[in-house]
């Protein structure tokens, strides 16, 4: 496998001393979908900005498509496509015009650009709306247009900053399909950021959880879940003595909580641990009345590595100020 992005100790310091990104090291393999998962303000966008030559690098080193964004700026720019978080399409231009403008900025020859634009519009189901101004598009259509406008120059790496931000769940799932298709059909490496757990889980081959500018952990979602999330096994037993201690000593069990005669166990992996628990219990002469196995999710992984749930986004001070000002009728 080729590493198409590689960083070592990548750091961004905003004066006087705010470390937006703090010594992160990671790699992205060619052809995979790699995701940065973290809350707002974790340093996701800043990392993208450094990798895409928009922000200077305070410390550390990185290569993107084989080039250093600091010194080989143009080489990097030629090989990447960026879809920023907000308006990556111009509302005053039609869908097709947006694509053709992007193509021209990358010096794609006219005839190639036209053909490519039609093909991409077709891919995301926008052929019929291609002649309409982008400002008349729905949120989902707009995101799709923005996705393909990052593809017009056939980049080696596509950077997507929060590709489904603000979309409803149905539209989001459709968007995931498009992103998967782009990745599979075009063998395109995709680097994306998200603060949606489901998105990271269902879309990414590998994920890095980032918080306060640092990577807490990285790996494939399944790997992280089994290592750090742990599955939960609930068992119901007849009234009897407290089994907490006995259960906790069984192999593969990391945590036990009791509520009456039902116990919730955290187990590291499914098959062997469940087996061990059942045979352990039967050797103690305890009959299991009922069981339920809950698969681990990235939720728990996030909670375990950062110490807080991802759902409670810290309030962005600026938006808090705006809503405060609005409430006061300013």
């Amino acid at each position: 496998m080729t590493k198409i992005i590689e960083t070592e100790g990548l750091t961004k310091v905003y004066p006087p001393s705010f470390r937006a990104v703090d010594r992160i090291s990671f790699y992205v393999e060619k052809g995979e979908i790699f995701g940065f998962l973290g809350p707002n303000g974790a340093g996701k966008t800043t990392t993208i900005r450094m990798l895409t030559t928009l922000a200077s690098i305070s410390d550390g080193r990185c290569t993107v498509a084989g080039f250093d964004p600091r010194t080989d700026t143009d080489q990097v720019r030629r090989r990447i496509g960026l879809v920023p978080q907000d308006a990556a399409a111009d509302g005053d231009l039609t869908g097709r015009e947006n694509l053709l403008l992007s193509a021209k900025l990358y010096r794609v020859p006219d005839d190639v650009a036209k053909e490519k634009a039609n093909e991409l519009l077709e891919l995301v189901g926008l052929s019929e709306s291609a002649g309409k101004l982008a400002r008349t598009y729905s949120g989902g259509m707009r995101k799709r247009l923005e996705l393909i406008s990052g593809l017009i120059n056939e980049p080696e790496i596509l950077f997507l900053d929060e590709p489904t931000l603000g979309l409803d769940i149905q539209t989001r799932k459709a968007m995931w399909d498009y992103i998967r298709e782009v990745n599979k059909e075009r063998k395109m490496t995709i680097f994306l950021t998200t603060h949606y757990l489901e998105e990271a889980d269902s879309l990414c081959d590998r994920v890095a959880i980032i918080d306060h500018g640092q990577i807490k952990v990285s790996g494939s979602p399944a790997e992280l879940e089994s290592k750090l999330g742990g599955n939960a096994l609930e068992i119901q037993v007849p009234e009897g003595p407290d089994l907490t201690k006995a259960l906790a000593s069984m192999s593969g069990v990391s945590e036990v909580s009791r509520s009456g005669s039902s116990y919730t166990l955290r187990i590291s992996n499914n098959g062997p641990s469940v087996q061990a628990v059942f045979s352990g219990l039967s050797s103690l002469g305890v009959k299991v009345v009922d069981t339920r196995l809950t698969k681990a999710s990235l939720d728990e992984v996030f909670l375990n590595v950062t110490g807080r749930p991802l759902r409670d986004d810290p309030v962005n001070p600026e938006s808090a100020f705006v809503s405060h000002a609005r409430a006061r009728g300013r």
Binding site: R49, T52, T53, L54, D74, R77, R78, I80, L82, V83, P84, Q85, D86, A87, A88, A89, D90, S102, L105, Y106, S149
Partner: peptide
């Protein structure tokens, strides 16, 4: 302020 500038500046223009 809309973010389009990032897209422009990430191109080799």
């Amino acid at each position: 302020s809309l973010g389009y500038l990032d897209k422009l500046l990430a191109t080799p223009i």
